[in-house]
Simulated scan of single mutants.
Amino acid sequence: MTRFAVFAAPGLLVYLALVLVPIGITTAYSFTNKNPFNPPTHWVGLDNLTSLVSDDEFRKALWNTIIITGIVTIVTNAGGLAIAMLLDRRGWLYNMLRSVFFVPVVLSAVVVSVIWQTILVDDGLLNSKLRQLGMSDPPGWLSNPDLALYTVSWVIAWQGIGFCVVIYLAGLQGIPQELHEAAAIDGCGPMMRFRHVTWPMLAPAVTINTVMSLIGGFKAYDQVQVLTNGGPGPGTTSTLAFQVVQTAFNGNHVGYASAMAVVMLVLVAAVSVIALGLLQKREVSS
């Protein structure tokens, strides 16, 4: 027990200092009117939390976050599985392609966003190519309020798809070849083998990728900040994380921003636990 405590103590102390203590401080601030430039700080109880219900900006940010999370979860999982199945072969070319698809995952979200911004702005690379092809009025990928949110979602999904590819590849390579051979002998075609062999055996990989994609979508911030700064227009692409930062550091309403952060934490935890529970039941049934 003593040895365990000695080895676990450094990690636990770091986790306590960098995770649990900040969560506790944020939760405490959420019950106050904390504003560093307008002291003193007073206890307001649940006023901040109840105010969020009628806050149009917060509700818009919540809805945007849900849309982004849904798109990111679907695109990364569907695209990641499709790419993984294409790369589930031997050879130096496929090994190189696996590395290529994983590169965006290790890059900073800010770097990825800056690269995509140069491509997607109105006079960027994409629209320049579209004009060369004869399109006189190409879409405003980041300037059109009807497109901006989906563009940001695409950038987030593009960066995260490599992670899903790696997890699905590991799952595919862990499926015994004998199962595919037995199914083929029984007369199952490619689609039947995928449905009755591959898909059930990938249940753990689906669980990991889905939960990670949900969490990644809910905490989207960097891409929004770099690509659109919450626009175009008021709150068009604002997310919960973006709204928390804007309220705390631009508006100096730390108490109110803390209440947003607490709600965000509860939502992420609840969605993750529910998704994990449902997907783990599928693992057992598979």
Rank of each mutant, 00 (worst) to 15 (best):
L13C: 12
L16R: 00
A17C: 13
L16Q: 01
V6F: 13
L13V: 15
S30K: 01
A17R: 01
T27R: 04
P10H: 06
G24Q: 05
V14N: 02
G11S: 09
V14G: 04
L20G: 03
L18Y: 11
T26E: 03
L18G: 08
G11Y: 06
F31A: 15
P22T: 08
P10E: 05
I25Q: 11
V19S: 08
Y29G: 01
L18W: 04
T26V: 15
V6E: 09
K34V: 00
A9R: 01
Y15C: 11
L12E: 03
L20A: 15
Y29T: 02
F7H: 11
P22C: 07
A28Q: 03
A17M: 13
V6P: 00
A17F: 12
A28N: 05
K34G: 00
T32H: 05
F7G: 04
F31Q: 10
T26L: 08
G11H: 01
T32F: 06
P10A: 05
V19F: 09
P36Q: 01
A17T: 07
G24R: 06
V21F: 14
A9W: 12
V19R: 00
V6N: 05
T27L: 15
L16P: 00
P36F: 02
I23P: 01
F31P: 05
I23V: 14
N35L: 07
K34M: 12
A9S: 13
Y29M: 15
G24M: 09
P22M: 10
I25M: 13
T32S: 14
A28W: 12
F7T: 14
N33G: 01
L18T: 12
P22Q: 06
L18H: 00
V6G: 00
P10D: 03
T27I: 07
L13G: 07
T32G: 04
L16M: 07
T32V: 07
F7P: 04
L13E: 00
V14A: 14
F31I: 11
A8Y: 06
N33Y: 04
T32L: 08
P22Y: 03
S30L: 09
G24A: 11
A9M: 14
A28R: 04
I23H: 01
I25E: 10
P10Y: 04
G24D: 07
G24L: 14
P10L: 08
Y29W: 11
L12W: 07
P36W: 04
P10R: 10
I23S: 07
G24F: 07
K34D: 08
P22N: 10
G11K: 08
F7V: 15
L12N: 07
N33I: 05
V21C: 05
I23F: 12
A28E: 05
G24I: 09
